[in-house]
């Protein structure tokens, strides 16, 4: 555990909590892509199946439970509790175009051809692109609430910090995981355009709106 890993995890947790609180406090999930949230719930479910087979640490186990719990709570709020506020008309990204090829890729490129390992690989690949429906939704409506941009910022920051963590681990522990690194780089790149808008607009007190 190094400082980048820890702040990365906390940043990830902050993103998840910000989104839950936003929906809970405003009693609305307007502007939030339910599809992205379903994908994240799928990511956590397929990745953390090792909860059933191996114990790493109390920290590890509890964070996994928190992530999974929050992911399903978010999906429940969007598709059940605050369903009336869900903006489904703008959430039109075709997720099967992500899930099907990624499922195929996880079968072809993995560390070990076993069910748990393939599901872990699937979750790593899927996480790298799971935010696309949300970004697509923002590009479609041309704007995002400021609180939504904070959510996206912490979610992107988390992956950027994980990249630093992997550089650290390569230098000080001497190993690396190619699947995680390639997917992590892809995931971080997807946020670059958003980071630029966040710094130039949101941090200067303006709402994030895209030019028409």
């Amino acid at each position: 555990m190094n400082i980048f890993r820890l702040t990365g995890d906390l940043s990830h947790l902050a993103a998840i909590i910000i989104l839950l609180l936003k929906i809970w406090k405003t009693r609305s999930c307007a502007g939030i892509s339910g599809k992205s949230q379903i994908l994240f719930a799928l990511v956590f479910t397929t990745r953390y199946l090792d909860l059933l087979t191996s114990f790493i640490s109390l920290y590890n186990t509890s964070m996994k439970f928190i992530y999974i719990g929050c992911a399903y709570a978010t999906v429940y709020m969007i598709y059940a509790k605050f369903k009336a506020t869900y903006d489904g008309n703008h959430d039109t990204f075709r997720v099967e175009f992500l899930v099907v090829p990624i499922g195929g890729l996880a079968f072809l490129v993995n560390h070990d051809f076993s069910p748990l390992e393939i599901l872990w690989t699937f979750s790593i690949y899927l996480e790298s692109v799971a935010i696309l429906p949300q970004l697509f939704m923002i590009s479609k409506t041309g704007e995002a609430e400021t609180i939504t941009t904070h959510y996206l910022f912490f979610l992107g920051l988390y992956r950027a910090l994980y990249l630093m963590n992997w550089i650290w681990r390569f230098y000080f522990e001497g190993f690396f995981d190619m699947i995680a690194i390639v997917a992590g780089v892809v995931q971080t790149i997807l946020y670059c355009d958003f980071f630029y808008l966040y710094v130039t607009k949101v941090l200067k007190g303006k709402k994030l709106s895209l030019p028409a």
Binding site: R5, D9, H12, D50, S54, I56, S57, N60, M63, K64, Y67, V109, N110, H111, D112, E117, W120, Y162, N165, W166, R169, F175, F176, D177, M178, I179, A180
Partner: peptide
């Protein structure tokens, strides 16, 4: 494939 080292991560 290369090492499978990051299973302790989230």
């Amino acid at each position: 494939m290369l090492s499978n080292a990051y299973k302790d991560e989230l």
